[in-house]
Design a protein around this nucleic acid. Structure first.
Length: 531
DNA sequence: CGAATTTGACCAGCGC
DNA sequence: GCGCTGGTCAAATTCG
């Protein structure tokens, strides 16, 4: 039994078990916080709700007596109602009456033992069922992940095919790196052409972002070429330029019109955060420098432009503007990837927004259905109460609306789509901004939270964030399947397994095999707290 | 006095 | 081609 528990827990902690963990969280409705993080057997037993504790306490009656109160607090929660406590109390009564459980077991072997054995049998059966369920979920998740990868590779191949047909490409006999979508930076043909060698992982991420940044940033790059903003930025710009063009992006870049751009899966996304704030700024854990202010059309309030100054050459920008309709609402729009670690205070929001941007980019900005189907995904984002995806905006933009749903309750009352915007009610709320720990007892799976809260935002953490968020949602498989279907139609068998994008290297995170397409998705953004 | 902010100018994309 | 708009730059100004 003990060994079984340990096996189970190993599995639980191995990524694929996040589904189960999530299920556990829901079954017990236990918003168990991080401090409860009890001994593995307890969690395992709690998996079966209150009944599990009985066996555990039987095996550990000494500790059970000492920590009975703690166990109740840690595992009782909402689901542990009075009846559950009575169950525990029943066992405790044995201990109390006889002094030790051993004595009690000897005195009433027929009743107690048979009861416990029956309970144990039932738990084993349940455990087996849950194992099977977990296996099935893990398998289907893996299949869906593979399908997603194929879809993404197919899209990239289509982009490459378009690029290859461009006149510039035809005229250039060399293998053009600018037309290659290097995802993991492992392709030497790309790295050879890059002029920058510092910060391989980060710069690779930025490379990829720049590669897929069509005009908005390339435009800026063109100017920055002459301005030597900073060595890192220059390196970044050079990489972008070598990717985009050496002279005029517009001329040399493969002819990609807006329609084609809309089909490219990895563009720069923007994450817009709406929050009520009296202050003119929100403190999001990062350092920003204001570089401009403009009056935007249709809004009496000026829009301020900031860039991240936490690291030299960090390309992250943000725009801050008050909502025209409700001036108490501050709209902060983030764009770009941090190329540096973030302070802990900035990490959670950064992960949330990164995941939002990643989902936006990886999924589906051209598909209403796919957008709609992303609801489940965003349900794992800690800071988002409402998310609105916009496919019609100049940039793919997701809006995390923290001005609504102040209770933080999880809802799924989808707003009827109007145009291509979909409002996705999520959990979290502005009242907890800047206090990530306060979100922990809510709807965030423990694994995801652990990653959201503890990891610095670095290029590779995107994968982890994504995987944690994905794995934490038991509905994700179905949602993802629907989303993929809406994007690519009927899933097909693998025909391009030798894609250059991933180099066949998968990253295993907590047991989840994550193919490294994620690094090219932007870490847009930063942590976020009300001032 | 250095850093941060302000603000007018400039540039590019886009629609007409 | 022209005007509008968003985004950025950089000199001027303010602040600590």
């Amino acid at each position: 039994m003990e060994n079984q528990h340990r096996r189970e827990l190993t599995f639980l902690s191995s990524g694929g078990g996040d589904f189960l963990r999530q299920r556990f969280d829901r079954v017990s409705e236990n918003s168990s916080d991080e401090h409860s993080d009890p001994a593995p057997p307890i969690k395992e037993m709690d998996f079966f709700s209150g009944s599990g504790n009985k066996v555990y306490e039987t095996k550990n009656h000494d500790r059970a007596q000492d920590h009975d109160h703690d166990n109740t607090n840690n595992h009782g929660s909402a689901a542990t109602t009075l009846s559950d406590r009575r169950v525990n109390t029943g066992l405790n009564l044995i201990s109390e009456s006889s002094g030790t459980l051993r004595v009690a077991s000897n005195e009433k072997p027929n009743t107690q033992l048979s009861t416990l054995q029956g309970e144990l049998r039932r738990l084993n059966e349940e455990n087996g069922k849950l194992k099977n369920m977990l296996d099935q979920i893990t398998k289907s998740y893996g299949q869906l992940q593979a399908q997603l990868m194929m879809a993404l590779q197919k899209q990239r191949a289509q982009v490459q095919a378009k690029d290859i047909l461009s006149p510039q490409q035809l005229m250039d006999p060399r293998p053009s790196t600018k037309l290659e979508v290097n995802v993991n930076g492992s392709d030497p043909s790309v790295s050879d052409d890059k002029t920058h060698n510092e910060e391989p992982s980060a710069s690779n991420t930025m490379e990829v972002m720049s590669k897929h940044d069509h005009h908005p940033m390339i435009k800026a790059v063109g100017r920055k070429q002459q301005q030597h903003e900073s060595p890192d930025q220059d390196a970044l710009d050079r990489s972008s330029q070598s990717w985009g063009s050496s002279k005029s992006p517009k001329l040399e870049e493969p002819k990609i019109d807006q329609e084609q751009v809309a089909e490219i899966p990895f563009r720069k996304a923007r994450v817009s955060v709406r929050a009520r704030s009296e202050a003119s700024l929100i403190s999001d854990g990062c350092q920003w420098r204001k570089y401009g202010q403009k009056m935007a059309k249709g809004n009496p309030c000026p829009r301020a432009y900031f860039r991240c100054t936490m690291a030299v050459g960090c390309p992250v920008r943000k725009q801050v503007q008050r909502c025209a309709e409700d001036k108490s609402v501050l709209i902060t729009t983030y764009e770009g990837n941090h190329n540096h670690p973030l302070p802990p205070a900035a990490t959670a929001m950064a992960n949330t927004t990164s995941a939002a941007a990643a989902m936006l980019l990886s999924g589906s900005t051209t598909s209403k259905d796919a957008l709609t189907n992303s609801v489940g995904y965003f349900s794992s984002m800690p800071y988002a109460s409402m998310a609105t995806l916009s496919a019609t905006a100049p940039f793919p933009t997701i809006t995390l609306d923290l001005t609504q749903n102040p209770t933080g309750a999880m809802q799924l009352n989808r707003v009827p789509p109007s145009g291509t915007n979909f409002t996705l009610p999520l959990h979290g709320g502005p009242q907890l901004l800047g206090h990530p720990a306060m979100f922990l007892p809510q709807n965030i799976p423990a694994m995801a939270l652990a990653q959201l809260g503890q990891r610095q935002v670095q290029p590779s953490s995107m994968i982890e964030t994504m995987s944690a968020a994905i794995a934490s949602d038991p509905n994700f498989s179905a949602i993802l399947a629907a989303a993929i279907s809406s994007i690519i139609g009927t899933p097909r068998s693998s025909t391009n397994g030798s894609s250059n994008n991933n180099g066949g290297s998968a990253v295993s995170l907590n047991g989840i095999s994550v193919l490294p397409e994620s690094p090219q998705l932007p870490h847009s953004c930063t942590t976020f707290s009300a001032k």
